[in-house]
Nucleic acid binder design. Structure first.
Lengths: 151, 151
DNA sequence: CTACACTCTGTAGTCGCTACAGACTCAAGA
DNA sequence: TCTTGAGTCTGTAGCGACTACAGAGTGTAG
């Protein structure tokens, strides 16, 4: 099905959106196989490598670590029950991680938004942003605070 | 107001929640001043340093980069209008960054959640998690999809 | 034959810590 | 006074996931 390897690293990069330095990096750390070379030592790739790299890239876009990606790659070919359960476990753990990061960022967002709002209002003697960082912020915004909701 | 420097690095660490190695790191990169030493070369700190480090730590908890923190530190003492505007600008830019990260993570969350859900349902021939990564996922979940909402 | 884009290797830098190793210091108890 | 044990010192290397060169070689179209 696959034609012989004939895709240069630049073309591979274009097709997957993964930059050239990164492809070489992935080869160095063993995430991509060492590609066969031309007489002039240029790497050549086939469709299988394009698919593999695209897989890696999508996994990275979803935030999986390279360690996870390595595991996911071994689970990809066989589609029996064991691998599926393992893939699900990895994805579930990662999902929990993503959610925890979201929660952290939302907490930051709230504090920053409050500080910026108060700062913009300009009716405080000191800078509310600085005060927040200095730990002397009046963070009691609950009482009578009108929640702006836009978007 | 401040008593003479008499706080060890361990005590400073305890008071700020910032670990010792990190304090030394901050000194090395010039974020904290080089502390005066005892005869035996132990660092000694005063209340001002405790406050400064606490400031740094809170800024870091809010996700500011060390470069931002450096700037924020210069804005802290004076509380005139200029610095306040600058602090607000920094905080606003950072807030945008935080929001963009949240959006990215939410996109990841959606895709992962879908894949894990389908995988758990177990009525697909192939593993939905792997299929998602391989780019052959049936991501048309909008039609007739019931949005679970918990929490 | 030349010009120019492409690719090669190897190394070092990024960010914000964290983790040692191996030596030294300090305060309290025997 | 001596010892013990906790604390601290410096310096360097490692983490993850790339990214950015320098300086050399290669491939190809005009």
């Amino acid at each position: 099905m696959d034609r012989p390897a004939s895709i240069t690293i630049g073309e591979l990069s274009r097709r997957t959106g993964c930059n050239i330095e990164t492809v070489r990096y992935y080869e160095r750390i063993g995430l991509m196989p060492s590609a066969p070379r031309t007489a002039g030592r240029y790497r050549l790739y086939g469709d299988a490598e394009v698919r593999r790299l695209a897989f890696v890239r999508r996994a990275r876009e979803l935030g999986f670590t390279l360690t996870d990606v390595r595991t996911l790659l071994t689970l990809a070919p066989g589609q029996s029950d064991g691998p599926c359960a393992q893939a699900r476990a990895l994805a579930t753990a990662h999902l929990a991680d993503v959610r925890s990061k979201i929660a952290d960022l939302r907490a930051m967002e709230r504090v920053l938004d409050d500080a910026v709002d108060q700062c913009a209002a300009g009716n405080t003697p000191n800078c509310p942003v600085i005060d927040t960082l200095a730990g002397r912020s009046c963070r009691s915004r609950r009482a009578g605070a009108t929640r702006r909701r836009r978007g």
